[in-house]
């Protein structure tokens, strides 16, 4: 991506050149280039009717636009009779234009409205009861994801990465911890605001396995730009395995370096971050119990590699200016110890 001069051309140029995105972000073969492209791609019953509605409307309106543009062109350029060059039309003349034109457009609009209402009805509710209920809470500038369970030991919390079983509707309860955010995973469903003081609902369902990108779309402050999320749709078996792994509390490893790292973590990080099964119970930042299992860091800003993790911890304010986490001033030895500890969180 070089040399594009505006945000909009940005998109088109990428499309035209067919550039392939960073492999870590490849959602699925088709939507790798524009991961939020909901107009051409849909992977679930909550967004497919909308995509078809979009095609229908766009095509119909494009045709009508061409007709009107032609009418205008003919109106401007058609040959006038030379016999009465000085006559000025009467005021009432031509009113039929308005009656016929408006009558036709009214009929078309009514038909479109009915089509719109049918589509709205289709996407309002899933076909059968949701298999899974999640609570997603928007924070400045990341997403907390809670997998509820009647048995509190089976309940777990993660961040920015939502795993769902493929082919099943999933109900998402949307909340906000601070300002208004909007949950949007375009190839799976339309958007819904997360409003403080309210619990909104949104359902998603993926037809195919894959990783689907989402983004906060309600401007929410300095780092609104970096408030992404991912939905990972997996087969039932894979999803169960993932869920079981997430339910486990952190394993205790007591090698020397890891232990030093754990002390640094308790001292510097545990005020905001939790690691289940330990004394670290901070609730302001993402739960880090299974940090290494996640694909992305920092609300989708970085891929989760050991190198990026170190950069994120030490250069937070440079990479995501305004983020609630400070850049940590640590010595090289402390960093390697902390990394060693964090790498055990899998």
């Amino acid at each position: 991506m070089k040399g594009s001069t505006s945000g909009c051309r940005f998109n088109c140029i990428v499309l035209l050149c067919g550039l392939v995105a960073t492999p870590g972000f490849a959602a699925s073969a088709e939507n790798r280039i524009a991961p939020l492209n909901y107009f051409l791609h849909s992977y679930g019953p909550a967004s497919t009717p909308t995509m078809h509605l979009g095609w229908g409307f766009a095509a119909l309106l494009a045709i009508i636009f061409i007709i009107i543009a032609l009418l205008l062109a003919v109106a401007v350029f058609h040959k006038r009779s030379v016999e009465e060059p000085r006559s000025m039309g009467r005021e009432e003349q031509g009113v039929m234009w308005i009656y016929i034109g408006t009558g036709l457009s009214t009929c078309i609009l009514l038909a479109m409205t009915i089509y719109m209402l049918i589509t709205l009805n289709k996407i309002a509710k899933p076909m059968h009861a949701p298999a899974l209920t999640l609570t997603v809470t928007g924070y400045d500038w990341w997403w907390k994801v809670e997998y509820e369970n009647g048995d509190s030991s089976r309940r777990f919390v993660t961040a920015n990465e939502i795993h769902i079983p493929v082919g099943q509707p999933v109900l998402i309860k949307l909340k906000s911890a601070d300002v208004i955010h909007t949950f949007w995973v375009p190839v799976l469903a339309g958007k819904t605001q997360a409003i403080p003081g309210l619990t909104n609902q949104q359902w998603i369902e993926a037809d195919v396995e894959g990783v689907y990108l989402g983004q906060c779309t309600q401007y929410c402050g300095l780092q609104h730009a970096h408030m992404g999320l991912e939905v990972v749709a997996q087969s039932e078996a894979e999803f169960r395995a993932w869920q079981d792994a997430q339910r486990k509390t952190a394993a205790t490893v007591s090698a020397g370096d890891v232990n030093t790292g754990w002390k640094i973590f308790l001292d510097q990080c545990a005020g905001c971050h939790a690691v289940r099964g330990t004394e670290a119970k901070g609730a302001h930042g993402p739960d880090l119990t299974h940090l290494s299992s996640r694909r992305l860091l920092a609300g989708g800003l970085l891929t989760n590699t050991p190198d990026h993790l170190v950069q994120w911890i030490t250069r937070t304010q440079e990479l995501k200016p305004g983020a609630r986490m400070p850049s940590m001033a640590l010595t090289a030895a402390e960093i390697s110890a902390l990394s060693a500890f964090l790498s055990t969180l899998n």
């Binding site: 939020l36 492209n37 401007y219």
Partner: peptide
């Protein structure tokens, strides 16, 4: 194609 508004900078992979 899904380009969100009010974003101060876009990452290259966002297409």
């Amino acid at each position: 194609l899904g380009m969100p508004r009010r974003i101060y900078t876009y990452a290259p992979h966002m297409g």
